[in-house]
Computed example of a mutant assay.
Amino acid sequence: MPPQCISPNPITTSTRCAAEIEMKEWWLHVGLICIPLAAVYLHIPPPQLSPALQKWHKAGERFTFRGSRVFYRDSFGALGSSDVVVLLHGFPTSSYDWNKIWEPLNQRFHRVIALDFLGFGFSDKPRGHKYSVFEQASLVEALLAHLGLAEQRVNLLAHDYGDTVALELLFRSDQNRTGHLTINSLCLSNGGIFPETHFPRLLQTVLKDFSLLSALLTRLTNYMIFSRGVGEVFGPYTQPTDAEFWDMWTGLRFNDGNLVMDSVLQYINQRTKHRDRWVGALTSTFVPCEW
């Protein structure tokens, strides 16, 4: 038998019971509406690849690195040259960042290689994985060994996140580590390689440092939040088009990459922890640029 409202005053009892029933019905309606909407939103499928992304995807290949599939592109270009350039992309995008200069690079270099780091683009994005700059550097070394270029002098062109990976590769080369790359030239662009002068955005700080909130935020981040955050990196006259923003978002959402952003963002903390190693490699090593 359901519990009954008991009060010395029948009118008060009736009013209170009616209010309680009405409140329960209100919450029931809210639940019936919001829970399905939340379920649909949190499990919304990733966007379809644009024709440009489909073309990039089809032109690529994959190899296995420590049990994960890694996407890369490898093309042969200029005849009469033996120069190889390796392109290292930034956060939170992918090798597709280089699509506009792919053909010009092919006209200059014998071989042009780009990859999607673990957790990015068309590469695997394992959850619960401890992403690190050290692992990504080992990934680059493994890819070049896979392509038979372990002994080849290479030119590194890096951006943002890729800058720090490049500095780890430079450190290994300087220390003559086993399996290290032989670097012919190094070009770093737009990367916060000096931790004391790099100020992460609020969302980045929350994602990398507040684990209780990050799991929720990685699911709630949508295209509008993403495009606004990425747009702040660009100047007023260099803003990406809507189509370019959408391709960036699509690449992030591929294989649920939005759900590992908090793990990948640990690279910012790693930059601070290993500052002497990476900045030291930059300041102590002279890399001639012949471009």
Rank of each mutant, 00 (worst) to 15 (best):
L42I: 12
H43V: 08
I44T: 13
I44S: 13
I44D: 10
P46R: 11
P47T: 14
P47M: 12
P47R: 15
P47C: 13
Q48C: 11
L49V: 02
A52I: 10
L53N: 14
W56A: 11
W56G: 04
H57Q: 15
K58N: 15
K58R: 15
K58H: 13
A59K: 15
G60P: 09
G60D: 11
E61G: 14
R62K: 15
R62S: 12
R62Q: 12
T64W: 07
T64R: 14
T64I: 13
F65E: 05
R66E: 15
R66W: 09
S68V: 10
R69T: 11
V70A: 04
F71Y: 14
F71V: 04
R73H: 07
R73D: 05
D74W: 05
S75E: 15
S75P: 01
F76E: 00
A78E: 09
A78P: 00
G80L: 06
G80W: 04
S81N: 12
S81R: 14
V85D: 02
V85K: 02
L87T: 00
L87Q: 01
L87V: 01
L87H: 02
L88W: 05
L88A: 03
H89K: 05
H89P: 04
G90H: 04
P92S: 15
T93R: 13
T93N: 10
T93E: 10
D97I: 08
D97Y: 09
D97G: 07
W98Y: 14
W98A: 00
N99L: 06
N99Y: 13
N99F: 10
K100I: 05
K100D: 15
E103W: 00
P104I: 01
P104Q: 04
P104G: 06
N106T: 01
Q107S: 07
R108Q: 11
R108Y: 02
R108C: 02
H110V: 01
R111V: 03
R111H: 14
I113D: 03
I113S: 01
D116Y: 07
D116N: 10
L118Q: 08
G119N: 06
F120G: 02
F120Q: 03
F120V: 04
F122Y: 14
D124L: 07
K125Q: 03
K125P: 04
K125D: 02
G128D: 10
H129V: 03
K130M: 07
K130V: 09
Y131C: 11
S132F: 02
V133M: 09
F134M: 11
Q136K: 05
S138I: 00
S138D: 14
S138W: 01
S138F: 00
V140M: 00
V140T: 03
E141Y: 01
E141H: 05
E141G: 02
E141T: 12
L144I: 11
L144R: 07
A145M: 07
L147Y: 08
L147W: 06
G148H: 09
G148P: 03
A150I: 08
A150K: 12
A150E: 14
Q152C: 11
R153M: 08
R153S: 12
N155C: 09
L157G: 02
A158Y: 03
A158F: 04
A158G: 08
H159Q: 14
H159W: 13
H159A: 06
H159C: 09
